[in-house]
Design a protein around this nucleic acid. Structure first.
Length: 1008
RNA sequence: GCGGGGGUGGCCGAGUCCGGACAAAGGCGGCGGACUUAAGAUCCGCUCCAGUAGUGGUUCGAGGGUUCGAAUCCCUUCCCCCGCACCA
């Protein structure tokens, strides 16, 4: 026994865990190399982004793959589980900036949430200093504390010189293959700082999205363009007039060599959006009112009217009015007509205003010719200020979009729904020069500096994720993927269909410079797509000078000796590592990354590597809550792994995180629940310690387990019967004492648990697996302890045998505890002992069925005791008479057609035994017929019973001698109820009335 | 809108794919008991309603349907959550 063996001390996780951590570190236990035995298994998780500390949410992210890695190691695989650090982009820089400015919120997060010591704060004032601190003090420490089985030799950061060489290779290669493209793209741009900004830089409007307006090029008499901004370009044929803000400021300007009139604000926006804008003269909105402009599509002349709702700071400040389909426009027009006489000040003929009639452009079921009128009437909208207007608009827009069918005037688009043709229609007229476009945000956006943020168009590089060949390859990769859970597969496919070009560079940030334009940095989601390949060589590539890491070098490494003119020997050596570990067996990642990172991961692998090296599987993880609420480091609403581990121990933290929900489900860290998990583990530890100590000084217990390192069932092919206690090599007859049926029952249950745990872990179902190994097994043991005489050598042997298997099943989840106890029990750690296999010879359905009868009789007696409120001195159990038994058999026989139906597979109408048929069959027996109603009641009852039973269980029941089962358990019943227990046949009863209720497997019970 | 996931007993949460031992695992909370000087820990039992005999009744968002039988299958309907691009 190691000196660390538990010796009656209570559970002290800190002590146990510190010892194993040190041992793993010293032995380099989880360092993986190609020359080791076992199938290569490669598991990765997105590298942490150390822009702050780690909380328990992160802890789960890394523990899920760890559990799987540990499981595969127990199964004998050679497992690589590496980790590195992602520092690319601006979040770390932003965090440093905020620290340097002395921002209160940032200081509070660092000081209070993440406990950064005051004197250390200045080390955090450089980006890599900041990153380094959180890497070392939080992530690395935390991951080690949690006991992650990581090969630490391979860590790196994405700002490392050699890593950049690798990314350079990747992007050079993609450019050569034509998958990168240069173009204009909308970005958020601070008009105060004159710089693009990211979401993190925003004070307001983080939710705002880009929105593309179509500009319909109406012209006035002189040919000046008045670009009407609209989100519904297809309504252009319904325009009856235009609106401007009479009090707004407008500008006549030369835009790309053409004369336009737009709001003053719009000129600035157009400039940012790559237009050449030259102001000519300022105008008041009122100057425009009363003018006529012509519709570029219908060539109709329409009047410009004043409207206070027009916002000059939204798009062009010039709006077209479609009163037939826009409740807003309808109401505005209605009011304009009512007050036509008042607007003569603009030089407008009131009759002309009154003559304006809505022009419908589509039909929609449930509405009349002018849907906007119906909507306004339905919602009883009074005025432009009426809140009901918004609702009416929302509903009508929605319906028109999905159901509205365009009228004949639309030619090729006629009869189609808006939804189906809007984009085509817009693009069509844009090409013909009738439309332009401009971008706006859906809401106001303000920079942290206080400056107004607008949409700007910038020259940038894109990854062409909408390239058809690339999409096709990626879809093939998705088809071959083990997507866990399976319903995520569709989400990947959907993402591929929906992704457009992806701008892959930024103006600033940490990371790799774009090789051919050093002004730009490759952004974080684009430099993290194939880095798993880098892990395979990360620990050895350090020996190679960065300048040697050319494109040719990596070509040789990944594509072999023929890929470069003069293959580098060193690259070929590293290639062996890569060959050994690739592909990635499982990547474990969060569900919100499906729509970007994980799909990119598939894209880049599909392009850069052969099919054999494409990702094998991806497991998705759910979100974490803390006490039912979202975790948030800025609000201090987080639990740090260190704190939780200090309080409960790493095993408890792991066990809770893995057991409270399946990986892909959301989970909730509730202190009460964690604490309860801890209690369970302590209880388990104490019980296990008792079992282990009980075996010391116990002649039967000594080495019963220490010699069983061989897998139990590898050699069990020649075992003869299953009703006898199995006697294989490691349970040699002299080591295994005589077992009672209850021992066999527990051993049989154990096999079910092993099977369930194994199957569950194969599919990453950590909850199911740990639930089975821990809680389900605990249930069985609870019954066993109640039911069995534990002082027997057989019971002690059984408990040890079960404990050893259970510890190995728990080893992936609670590695410290499981290894510690297993070593104390057998002299060998659980992880060295390996994963237990199902020992089929110990599976005994008959024993389980018999035991279930004992249990249900216990329940029955208990029920009677409870309902009657008596404390019985005598319990009489009467088993059913023989004739009832034979009725049962006949009923079962009638049920057998069920099998025939099932094997046909065509009939789910398996009704079980036919009551009528059974009855006539049974009534043909004169002895039975004599019993009349008694028989027919019995048949009725048995038919129902049989219908509800599994076939195999029925077969076993037919062979069971009930009286024997209960008699065997009589001692147990006597203890349980503290009463004399007599098991008799129905016909032996002194008082027939009390016994004749007996039914097969449902003995009559009488207590007194 | 698009895509995904849900609605189960006081609460959390299994079960739903492949209908039947389901009044529905397990946990928490609550009640009772054992142990203890006591508290804690631990162990046992109860915890939808009715009931002095193992029973009966009503439940799994709502409403229909299929079936001998539905939390599970089908249809309709209501409600909730998550992600959606330059943020990692």
């Amino acid at each position: 026994m190691p000196p660390s063996a538990p010796s009656g001390m209570s559970y002290d996780p800190a002590d146990i865990e510190a010892r194993w951590r040190e041992r793993w570190r010293q032995e380099g236990y989880y360092e993986a190399d190609p020359d080791e035995e076992g199938d290569a298994t490669f598991i990765t998780v997105p590298y942490p982004y150390p822009s702050g500390g780690m909380h328990v949410g992160h802890a789960r992210t890394y523990t899920v793959p760890d559990v799987y890695a540990r499981y595969r190691r127990l199964q004998g695989d050679n497992v690589l589980f590496p980790i590195a650090w992602h520092v690319t982009g601006t979040p770390i820089i932003g965090a440093v900036e905020r620290l340097k400015k002395g921002e209160e919120e940032q200081l509070s997060v660092l000081r209070d949430t993440y406990d950064v010591p005051e004197e250390t704060l200045q080390d955090l004032e450089t980006p890599m200093g900041f990153a380094r601190y959180f890497i070392e003090e939080h992530y690395k420490k935390g991951l080690r504390q949690l006991g992650l089985s990581v090969d630490w030799r391979r860590e790196f950061t994405t700002n490392d010189e050699r890593y950049s060489k690798f990314i350079t290779w990747q992007y050079e290669t993609l450019r050569d293959r034509g998958l990168l493209e240069k173009g204009l793209h909308p970005v958020k741009y601070c008009t105060n700082e004159n710089n693009p900004v990211t979401t993190h830089d925003l004070l307001e409007g983080e939710e705002a999205e880009f929105q593309e307006y179509t500009l319909v090029r109406f012209r006035d008499g002189e040919g000046t363009v008045l670009p009407m901004a609209t989100l519904r370009p297809e309504t252009v044929r319904g325009v009856t007039n235009a609106f401007v803000d009479p009090d707004g400021e407008y500008v006549r300007a030369e835009v790309d060599g053409e004369e336009w009139v737009v709001s003053r604000e719009a000129t600035e926006k157009l400039r940012l959006q790559d237009h050449d804008v030259e102001s000519i003269e300022e105008l008041a909105g009122a100057d425009l009112v009363g003018e006529h402009v012509s519709n570029p599509i219908t060539e109709d002349e329409v009047l410009i009217l004043p409207a206070s709702f027009v916002d000059t700071d939204n798009a062009t400040g010039v709006v077209m009015s479609v009163p037939a389909h826009s409740p807003d426009d309808y109401v505005a027009l209605r009011e304009a007509r009512e007050r036509a006489d008042e607007i003569t000040q603009y030089g407008i003929d009131p009759d002309e205003v009154r003559a304006i009639e809505p022009v419908p452009i589509l039909t929609i079921e449930g509405y009349g010719e002018i849907p906007a009128r119906d909507a306004v009437e339905e919602y009883d909208v009074e005025s432009q200020e009426d809140p009901a207007l918004e609702e009416a608009t929302q509903e009508l827009y929605n319906r028109e979009f999905h159901q509205g069918e365009l009228l004949n005037a639309y030619g090729e688009y006629a009869g189609e729904t808006v939804e189906d043709v809007r984009e085509r229609f817009r693009d069509d007229y844009r090409e013909r020069g009738a439309f332009d476009s401009m971008q706006e945000f859906t809401g106001e956006v303000v920079c942290r500096c206080g400056g107004d943020v607008e949409v700007a168009k910038q020259e940038t590089w894109f990854l062409r994720y909408n390239d058809e060949d690339w999409m096709a390859k990626t879809k093939r990769a998705i088809e071959g993927l083990d997507a866990i859970p399976d319903n995520t597969r569709e989400q990947y496919t959907h993402t591929v269909d929906w992704l457009n070009e992806w701008p892959c560079i930024r103006n600033y940030g940490l990371g790799t410079r774009l090789p051919w334009d050093e002004d730009f940095v490759i952004e974080p989601l684009s430099d993290s797509t194939v880095y798993m390949a880098y892990y395979t060589v990360a620990h050895r590539i350090r020996d190679i000078p960065p300048e040697d890491l050319t494109v040719d070098f990596f070509d040789t490494l990944f594509y072999g000796p023929d890929a470069a003119a003069n293959p580098d020997e060193r690259a070929l050596e590293l290639r062996e590592e890569w060959d050994h570990w690739y592909p990635v067996d499982y990547r474990v990642s969060a569900n919100d990354l499906i729509s970007n990172h994980l799909t990119f991961y598939l894209y880049h692998h599909a392009e850069l590597f052969d099919e054999a090296n494409w990702p094998r599987g991806i497991t998705i993880m759910g979100m974490g809550l803390l006490e039912g609420r979202k975790m948030s480091s800025s609000k201090g609403h987080v639990v740090l792994p260190g704190e939780a581990i200090d309080e409960y121990g790493a095993d408890t933290v792991r066990f809770f995180l893995l057991n409270s929900a399946e990986p892909w489900q959301d989970y909730d860290w509730r202190d009460e629940a964690v604490s309860s998990a801890h209690t369970q583990l302590r209880r388990f530890y104490n019980r296990a310690t008792e079992v282990i100590e009980g075996s010391r000084g116990d002649p039967d217990g000594r080495a019963a387990e220490s010699s069983e390192t061989a897998e139990p069932s590898r050699d069990d092919g020649n075992r003869e019967t299953i009703s006898e206690p199995p006697r294989d090599e490691q349970d040699a007859p002299d080591d295994q004492p005589d077992l009672r049926p209850i021992d066999e029952w527990l051993l049989s249950r154990l096999q079910g648990v092993v099977r369930e745990s194994t199957e569950a872990l194969e599919g990453f179902e950590t909850r199911t697996a740990s639930q089975a190994a821990f809680y389900a097994m605990e249930e069985h043991l609870r019954w066993y302890r109640r039911r069995a005489d534990l002082d027997r050598p057989g019971a002690r042997w059984t408990l040890r045998h079960v404990l050893a298997r259970r510890l190995r099943l728990l080893a992936p989840f609670t590695p410290f505890l499981a290894n510690e106890l297993h070593e104390a029990l057998t002299g060998e750690s659980a992880e060295d002992a390996g994963w237990p296999e199902v020992d089929e010879a110990r599976e005994d359905p008959t024993v389980e069925v018999r035991e279930s009868l004992v249990e249900s009789l216990t329940d029955d007696i208990n029920d009677i005791v409870n309902v009657t409120g008596t404390d019985p001195d005598v319990v009489q159990v009467y088993t059913a008479a023989d004739w009832k038994r034979s009725v049962f058999e006949q009923v079962v026989e009638q049920a057998s057609p069920r099998d025939a139906d099932r094997s046909n597979g065509d009939s789910r109408e398996t009704t079980g035994p036919d009551v009528g048929a059974v009855m006539s069959e049974i009534m043909s027996d004169p002895d039975l017929r004599e019993r009349g109603n008694e028989v027919s009641d019995l048949v009725q009852e048995l038919v129902e019973f049989v219908r509800e039973q599994e076939d195999d269980r029925l077969a076993i029941l037919e062979a069971v001698d009930e009286a024997d089962v209960y008699a065997d358990a009589a001692g147990f019943y006597e203890r349980e109820f503290d009463a004399d227990v007599r098991v008799l046949g129905e016909t032996d009863a002194e008082d027939a009335a009390r016994a004749d209720g007996a039914v097969p497997f449902r003995p009559a019970v009488h207590i007194e």
